[in-house]
Computed example of a mutant assay.
Amino acid sequence: MKVVFEHALPNVEGKRLVSVVVNYPPGAKSLPHHHAASAFIYAYVLSGTIRSQVDNDAPKVYHQGEAFYEMPGSHHRMSENASKTEPSSLLAVFVVDAKDDVLTTPDSAPGSR
């Protein structure tokens, strides 16, 4: 995950916008995780296909040009490259409290839910 943009929202006191690019090699996946409790996230697939499951919704596959979102407090149970042969990437745009420095916490991390 690489931060590509970050800026305080001038018209929403105490909030900032952070954009990150997540690159997945073929077959790669992230651990189940939570994001900062204040985070609303818009995710846009830049390349390839991404399989995602948020909370108890059924897993979905998103293709290049498709998008999804996560509400604050969501549990991202699955985030992975749906292809075993092609890389994939997504742009995740966070609207988050300015004080929230940690954007993503894997479930296996101390203090995670």
Rank of each mutant, 00 (worst) to 15 (best):
L17V: 13
M78R: 09
A58C: 04
K99P: 05
H75F: 01
L17M: 12
P72A: 09
A28V: 06
E13H: 03
L90C: 00
A109D: 05
G73P: 04
E13N: 07
K99L: 07
H75N: 02
S83A: 10
K29C: 12
H7A: 13
S38E: 07
T104K: 06
A39K: 14
A58D: 13
N23M: 14
G27F: 07
P72Q: 10
M78I: 14
A8G: 09
K84A: 07
K29S: 15
S112E: 08
L90I: 00
G27Q: 07
H76Q: 03
G14L: 06
T49I: 06
G14M: 06
F40N: 08
M78G: 01
V96A: 08
A92T: 12
S88H: 00
L103G: 02
V20R: 08
E80H: 07
I50H: 12
H63T: 15
P25Q: 12
S52N: 13
I50M: 10
A8S: 12
V96F: 07
D57H: 10
P59E: 00
A37M: 13
A98K: 15
T104D: 02
H76Y: 00
L103T: 08
S19M: 12
N11G: 03
G73M: 03
G111D: 10
V21S: 03
V45W: 09
A98V: 14
R77S: 00
D100A: 11
D55K: 02
G27R: 11
A82Y: 06
A43E: 03
A43S: 11
V3M: 01
D101C: 01
A58G: 09
P10L: 09
P32R: 04
F40K: 10
M71Q: 14
N23K: 15
K99W: 08
P32A: 05
A8E: 14
L103M: 08
